[in-house]
Design a protein around this nucleic acid. Sequence first.
RNA 1: GCGGUUGUAGCUCAGUUGGUUAGAGUACCGGAUUGUGGUUCCGUGGGUCGUCGGUUCGAAUCCGACCUGCCGCCCCA
Length: 455
Amino acid sequence: MVKPSIPKGTRDFTPVEMMRRNYIFDTIRNVFHKHACLPIETPAMENLSTLMGKYGEEGDRLLFKILNSGDFTKGVDFQDETQSTNKLAAQLCEKGLRYDLTVPFARFIVQHQNELTFPFKRYQMQPVWRADRPQKGRYREFYQCDVDIIGSNSLLNEAELVEITDEVFRAFGINIVMKINNRKILSGIAEIFCSPDQVTDLCVALDKLDKIGREAVCAEMLERGISQDAICGMAPLFELSGLSNEEVLAKLEQMLAASETGLQGVAELRTVLDYVAKMQIATNLEIDVTLARGLNYYTGAIFEIKATDVAMGSISGGGRYDNLTGIFGLKNMSGVGISYGAERIYDVLNELNLFPQHILTPITAMFVNFGGDDEIYALQGLKALRDAGIPAEIYPDKAKIGKQMNYANAKGIPYVIMAGENERAQGVYTLKNMQTGEQKSLVIGEIVEAMKNDE
RNA sequence: GCGGUUGUAGCUCAGUUGGUUAGAGUACCGGAUUGUGGUUCCGUGGGUCGUCGGUUCGAAUCCGACCUGCCGCCCCA
């Protein structure tokens, strides 16, 4: 016998967990529908060539690769030590599990460009896989809920994503702060203070400011080859927290006066904030110039969302990408999107006790099984309830009443219906409220009515 | 990928310097109670002590490797 187990970082979901997860997906899907977004799905596995090189060096390492079928060692030289692991893997694996939903989406757009109407608003809620080391809130298989608007440069789309985010988290009752930045601002900073090709090093270091503090960030910048002079020049960046969005924009405009790109980033940010204000979106939107995010395909706005009432990593993130489809041969297709992390949202809802009670009791009534003719009589009542759209079941065996009651109790079924010889003779059913213990003799129509009103 | 830490019944955990047949609570199942659950009482079952190897007369206990969960780094939903 094998000991039952599942791979590291993966999980089973119990009925209670699934009902909660479905509540999350349903809630998000409703908001997406309201914003006229259309659903798509893509396969769990993509060609490795689609995936490799899109997420940086780190991303390549975290990709799950799928061993070729058949004689996969044929023609592969394992002795050749000049081959890197990556090159060897490329010979052995031509497929991999998707790492996120955005790159497969870009592939999808290019492949189906002639069937789609642009601007295209899509949503997609599917699992993704990363060979990361699991920790709390970090899994190797997890779900993302993505929404993207592609084929339009309009900053109205950024504003709409803020609006969608606001609606999603308001529906959950989660208080959030939404941080926003613009990659062009980061490029401008690199342009002015160090050099444009150091923007990645700059971002990686700057991104850690709230975590490791100013001094450690400066130390990391030095280590990454950014000069002391440049770091001193950037000093005002470290002093922006606490300022209003307007004040931050003004300061950035000063600092970036010599960079066209940088100023454009500031202008974009200002426009988005302006839209958001005019649309009267209540979400707390905060400029954070240290927000960089690792994904190197972002070119404009960058978003990140954190729950304010619980200590947890970001529950959502996204941004604008101008050229993601370019690598698949389609130019001039700018898009902006955001991704909500289902398991992070689950943990937040759980920790703050925000899951609604009603999602846990999908079964409204259970008929006790007395066997024989009583069983048939119960089945008739059961059908009436189901026809009326009331989720109900009958205990399948003629077991002891205590056992059947226990079953209903353990499953949290709010109503138990009993009908034996006496009830059958009178054409009624005994309805028992499991919470109060109260019992009533009613005809089936009255029971249906009572339960409909109860909902 | 690097460093640290954890693992005993379905669950929460005891288990003495290494010493007979590894315990408790809870849950489960059965009974007290054959048309009434949540409270109570009694009883049954349930363990390759994470896995493999080593030290030892003897290992849940000491050592090593691996696996898993967790924490930090990297990165990130």
